[in-house]
Write a protein that binds this DNA or RNA. Structure first.
Length: 235
DNA sequence: CGTGTTTGACCCGCGC
DNA sequence: GCGCGGGTCAAACACG
């Protein structure tokens, strides 16, 4: 798996992908799929799709593990180093009669390991915070405004932010009751051909599309959230 | 009527 | 302590 340096993303932690959705409308965009039973905080990037046409190998070529800006203490010059939070990438693929599932596992180092590194200025404290909160971002080359990542989301806000005056930032929550995962979606202000999707949190349930495709009964634990509704108009 | 989105108000953490 | 910027709330709105 090749690693690339991507100057446009120097300020953030991104997994960078080219969306194959335009060619393959059945493709489910890989998303942060981090099950609560994964005590080791392994991230599992999973795509699930019924269509078998998609070639996993070609996708791997487009999945870039980005670099993060790290700084030399003495002269503040950036050092180039592979994102230490995502430093172990492996993949696996399984196929059954109903669907094909490909998973990416990115195992972050322990918090203590990160803190040790932060003492010598290799990792910024902000990154440790994000790692503890399970924050990760995708930067995706696509003209689509909504990427199907297999989960059901409820939009709860949008905002013009100062850091990106060209496009609005959209806020979503996972629609499953009791699941607190959020995501933010905005178009890259520096290069509008890219969409930036930031996930925060770990889902405490299976991916929605898996539930549907595998015909697993959705019991009360995974019951669809019925969130607050708008009230009736007050005259 | 049920469900999802819009949008201005509100909240809150952080830097000064 | 205060103001700014970004995140969230929730009534109103939209639409099938």
């Amino acid at each position: 798996m090749a690693h690339y340096f991507s100057p446009n993303t120097m300020n953030s932690t991104f997994l960078e992908t080219n969306s194959p959705q335009i060619e393959n409308p059945n493709f489910t965009f890989p998303s942060l799929y981090s099950h609560m039973t994964n005590q080791d905080c392994t991230y599992n990037f999973q795509d699930t799709f019924l269509d078998q046409d998609f070639e996993f190998s070609s996708f791997l070529d487009h999945l870039l593990v980005d670099y993060v800006p790290t700084y030399n203490n003495s002269n503040n010059t950036p050092l180039l180093e592979i994102n230490p939070i995502m430093h172990e990438i492996s993949s696996s693929s399984s196929t059954n009669s109903a669907s094909s599932t490909t998973s990416f596992y990115a195992t972050p180092p322990s918090i203590n390991h990160l803190k040790e590194k932060s003492k010598v200025g290799i990792i910024k404290k902000e990154m440790i915070k994000k790692n503890e909160r399970h924050v990760i971002a995708f930067r995706t080359k696509t003209q689509l405004e909504i990427l199907d990542d297999g989960y059901k989301w409820r939009k709860y806000g949008k905002k013009k932010v100062k850091s990106n005056t060209n496009y609005l930032r959209n806020y979503y929550k996972c629609s499953i009751r009791g699941c607190e995962v959020k995501k933010r979606v905005e178009r890259d202000g520096h290069d509008s051909s890219y969409l930036i999707t930031t996930y925060e949190g770990k889902h405490n349930h299976e991916i929605n599309s898996s539930i549907i495709y595998n015909h697993v009964e959705v019991d009360s634990e995974f019951e669809l959230n019925f969130h607050r509704r708008g009230r009736k108009r007050v005259e």
